[in-house]
């Protein structure tokens, strides 16, 4: 090849090769996206799913587990002692400090996503752990009566799902809280 005698020609030729090869490469990479994105949750899975639940049969001290968005949710009707315990816990003792007030809409009703924040097991309703809440059977995380992590490997408190009370005995889980609550959350 005549590299030295015809530099301009070589450059122009190289440009076309590089341009077409890179265009093909970019096209190929972009075309991969649908094949990757198809594995993300589909529209019907993402569709807003709400679960309405009747609270009236639950007696104080009882915990029920229901399903929402393929996850278990605890609904616990707390006794006055349990509420007091939760409210009195000093924030300094908490791994993930949060007041009990910030985790409930009505102190009597504790509603939590029942997924241990360590590795996703469901904490046990029977083994209440050292703090009267829940004990995760997988790796021994102890939660208190507000669902906050007190001991063990879990890094965070049990999450609170969006919910709203439709009446004193009906709760809608999955529905965003009323606008006032929503702004409070943002603020």
């Amino acid at each position: 090849m005549a590299h030295t005698t015809d530099n301009a020609n070589v450059t122009r030729r190289d440009f076309i090769y590089v341009a077409s090869a890179s265009a093909a490469a970019v096209g190929g990479i972009v075309a991969l996206w649908p094949f990757i994105d198809q594995m993300n949750p589909a529209a019907d899975t993402l569709a807003l799913k709400e679960v309405e639940f009747d609270l009236s049969p639950i007696v104080p001290g009882q915990i029920v587990t229901i399903e929402w968005q393929k996850k278990p949710v605890f609904i616990r009707r707390r006794t006055p002692e349990e509420i007091k315990e939760a409210e009195d816990a000093p924030l300094a003792d908490l791994k993930d400090p949060q007041t009990d007030d910030a985790r409930v809409q009505k102190p009597e009703w504790l509603i939590l996503v029942a997924t241990c924040t360590h590795l996703g097991c469901v904490p046990s309703n029977q083994l209440k752990g050292d703090f009267g809440g829940w004990l995760c059977p997988c790796h021994g995380s102890h939660y208190d009566t507000s669902g906050r992590i007190r001991k063990g490997p879990a890094p965070k408190n049990l999450a609170v799902p969006p919910y709203q009370f439709l009446s004193d005995t009906k709760v809608l889980i999955g529905a965003a809280p009323k606008p006032a609550a929503a702004t409070a959350e943002h603020g």
Partner: peptide, 13 residues
């Protein structure tokens, strides 16, 4: 039909 309607880019695939 779910692939065509709900899966991301399902119609394309």
């Amino acid at each position: 039909e779910r692939i065509m309607r709900d899966v991301n880019y399902g119609w394309l695939l």
